[in-house]
C-alpha cells in the first residue's frame, strides 16, 4: 500500500509550513523508506517555499538507533545546502544518552529544548550565536 500511495502511507511524516519555517514531527519508529521519503519531502518543500529554517521535533521518539542519528545529520546537511538552518527540538534524556554512547554527537546539528525555543532560535538573524555549543568565547 505504501508503495502505491507513498504520500498517504501509514508511516508518512507530514511536513508543515509555518511562515518561513518547516515543522516536522517524528513519532515512534522511523523506517528506511519513510526516512528517505521524508528527506525528499523536506528538500522539495524548502526549494518550493524558500523556507529558511527546519524544526524537527523528536520529543515523541523514545528509542533511538544509529540510523535515526544519521538521518538527522543528513537532513541538516541537505537543508544547509539549500540555505536553511535545521534545529532538532525536544530530544529526550534517554535518547541523548544513547546517541552519546553510540558516539553520535552530531556536531553540526543545532538543538533546542522545545519547538518554541527552536522557533525563537531560527527567528534570530544570521548564523546561530551558539553553533553546537562549541565556541565558548563567542558570546
Amino acid at each position: 500500500m505504501t508503495d502505491e500511495f507513498p504520500h498517504l502511507g501509514k508511516g508518512h511524516v507530514p511536513v508543515l509550513r509555518l511562515g518561513d519555517v518547516l515543522l516536522v514531527t517524528l513519532q515512534g519508529d522511523l523506517h528506511d523508506s519513510t526516512a528517505e521519503q521524508l528527506q525528499q519531502d523536506i528538500g522539495e518543500t524548502i526549494a518550493r517555499t524558500r523556507a529558511t529554517g527546519v524544526v524537527i521535533d523528536i520529543s515523541g521518539v523514545e528509542v533511538v538507533d544509529s540510523f535515526l542519528g544519521r538521518v538527522l545529520a543528513e537532513i541538516a546537511a541537505q537543508a544547509r545546502l539549500l540555505a536553511a538552518r535545521t534545529v532538532v527540538a525536544g530530544m529526550r534524556p534517554a535518547v541523548a544518552i544513547t546517541l552519546v554512547e553510540l558516539g553520535l554527537t552530531l556536531p553540526g546539528l543545532r538543538t533546542a529544548l522545545s519547538t518554541e525555543e527552536a522557533m525563537q532560535l531560527l527567528a534570530r538573524p544570521g548564523p546561530d550565536p551558539r553553533p553546537g555549543g562549541t565556541r565558548p568565547g563567542s558570546a
Binding site: 530530544m91 529526550r92 541523548a96 544518552i97 552519546v100 529544548l113 525555543e117 527552536a118 551558539r130
Partner: peptide
Amino acid sequence: MKTVQAARLMGAEC
C-alpha cells in the same frame, strides 16, 4: 564530556 554532549543534543548548554 558525555554529559555535556548529551545535554547539547537536548538543546541545553552544559
